[in-house]
Design a protein around this nucleic acid. Structure first.
Lengths: 232, 232
DNA sequence: CGATTCCTGATTGTCTACAATCGACGGATG
DNA sequence: CATCCGTCGATTGTAGACAATCAGGAATCG
C-alpha cells in the first residue's frame, strides 16, 4: 500500500491540482479497483495520516464521491463505500441501457467510414478471442468497443453520465456472474449493433444498443438466480 | 433575503441533519429558483456570515453540488453557478429523452387501471388548459404529469437521475423559449404516450416518451434559432 | 449466565487561524 | 495615452484544535 501514497504525492507536486481533487481521484481509484471494498469504512484520520494531509480536503472529497454515488456519508458514523444489492445493480443496468441506446442513435446519425472500419475490426477480434473462450482477453476488448461507441457519439454529457454508471457497477462485486450467456452470444449482439450503425438508422441503432445492455441485465439476473439455487 | 437564513435556521434545529447537508439543500434551492444566477460567484465568507456557520461545511456542500453539475469549482478563484450554453442544454435534452423513454417502457410493463385513469385525467385537464392558451396553468400540470410517469416506473435510480437532469435544465435561463410549438401540440404527444402506456407495449412506450422529449428539444433549438434571427 | 447500563477511547463535525493566490487599482514608464 | 509592474485587500485552501457523538468493552444487576 505504500506505493499508493506515492501516487498522491506525484499528483500534488503538480500545483495546478488542489489536494481535494487529488484525494478524490485517488479515493475513486481505490474504490474502483476494489482496494476499498463495498461496505468498508473510510477513516478520515487514517487517510490523513497516510496521505500526509489534514482532514478537511478528505471530507470535501468524500462529499463529492457521495454525490457520485460511490460512497454513503452517515452523520456521526462515517463514510462507507457503497454496497450494491442485486436490485440496485438491475436499476443501474436499466439506466445504462437507456444511455447506451441513445449513444447508439447519436452515433448512427454521424457515422464515418473510418470509425465503422475500426469498430468492425474490434468485433472481428472479439470473435477470434471468443472462439478461444478467453474471458480475460475478451473483457478489455468489449470495454474498449463500448467506450469507443459512447466516446464517439458527440454528446459529452451523455458520455460522462454513462461512465459514471459503469463506474458504479464496479461496486457490484459479482464480475464472475457477468460471463453468463457466453462470449459468442455477446458478440453476435455486437454485430447487430454494427449493422445498425452502418445503416445510419437511428431508431434501429438505439434499439440494438439498448437491447444489448438489456440482455446483459437478463443474463446477470439469470446468473444471480442460478448462483442462489446452487447455494440452496 | 433575510427570510432565507431563517430557512436554514429551521433546518439546523432538527439535529439529525448536518450543517453541510442543510447548506447544500439551501444552496441548491437558491440556484434552482434563480436567486443565485448562472455565472454568479458563491462567496464563502459572505455565505458563512449570512448563515452563521464556518466556511468548512460550505466548502463541503459546494463540492457535492459540483459533482451534481450545478456549480463549477475553479481552484483559487471560487465557486460559480454553472452557466449552460445552448449546446449544453441540447446534450442534456438527449440524456433526458433517453431516461424518459426508459421510464415509459418500465411503466408500460407495470401499468395499473388506477394509474392509467389518473394520467388520463391529467391529460384531459391539460387539453382544457391548452384551449385557453394559458401557459402558466399548463406548465405545472405538464410537470406533474411527467413526474408521475417517472415516479411510477419503479426504478429509483432512474427517477433520481431524471430529476438531476431536469434540475440542471433550470440553469438554462430561457424558459420562455420552451413554449414553442404550442400547448396543443405538446398534449397530443402526451396522448400518444398514454395510448402506448395503455397498450402495455414497452417498445412503443419507450419510443413515444423518447420522442416527446426529442421533439421538445427540436422546438427549443428552433426557438433559439428564431430568437437569434430576431436579434440580427 | 445473560441482559442491561455505564464509561471511555476513537472518530466525526465544526470552528478558527494562517498561508497562498488572485484580481483590481494606482503609479511609473515609454 | 497605452502598457506594464507592484502593492494590497479579499478570498480561497489547508492545518490544527475543540466539542459532540457513537460503538465497543467492562461492570453491574436480575
Amino acid at each position: 500500500m505504500g506505493s499508493d501514497s506515492n501516487h498522491l504525492a506525484d499528483l500534488s507536486v503538480v500545483k495546478s491540482v488542489s489536494l481535494t481533487s487529488a484525494l478524490e481521484k485517488e479515493l475513486e481509484r481505490l474504490i474502483l479497483t476494489g482496494e476499498l471494498e463495498p461496505g468498508e469504512r473510510i477513516n478520515e484520520i487514517h487517510l490523513s495520516n497516510r496521505f500526509g494531509t489534514s482532514r478537511g480536503p478528505i471530507r470535501e472529497a468524500t462529499r463529492s464521491l457521495e454525490a457520485k454515488g460511490l460512497v454513503e456519508v452517515v452523520r456521526n458514523r462515517g463514510v462507507f463505500v457503497r454496497r450494491l444489492s442485486v436490485e440496485d445493480a438491475v436499476e443501474i443496468y436499466d439506466v445504462r441501457a437507456a444511455l447506451f441506446g441513445q449513444a447508439g442513435r447519436l452515433l448512427a446519425e454521424r457515422m464515418t467510414d473510418g470509425l465503422l472500419g475500426q469498430l468492425t475490426r474490434m468485433v472481428d477480434e472479439m470473435d477470434a478471442v471468443a472462439e478461444r473462450g478467453s474471458f480475460d482477453d475478451y473483457y478489455p476488448l468489449n470495454l474498449s468497443f463500448h467506450n469507443l461507441i459512447v466516446g464517439s457519439c458527440g454528446n459529452r454529457t451523455l458520455q460522462a453520465e454513462y461512465h459514471r454508471f459503469v463506474n458504479k457497477l464496479h461496486l457490484f462485486r459479482a464480475r464472475a456472474l457477468v460471463q453468463g450467456g457466453g462470449l459468442a452470444v455477446s458478440n453476435r449482439e455486437h454485430r447487430a449493433m454494427l449493422e445498425a450503425l452502418a445503416s445510419g438508422d437511428g431508431d434501429r441503432a438505439q434499439m440494438t444498443h439498448w437491447r444489448h445492455v438489456a440482455l446483459a441485465k437478463r443474463r446477470l439476473i439469470a446468473a444471480v438466480d442460478g448462483a442462489a439455487s446452487r447455494i440452496d
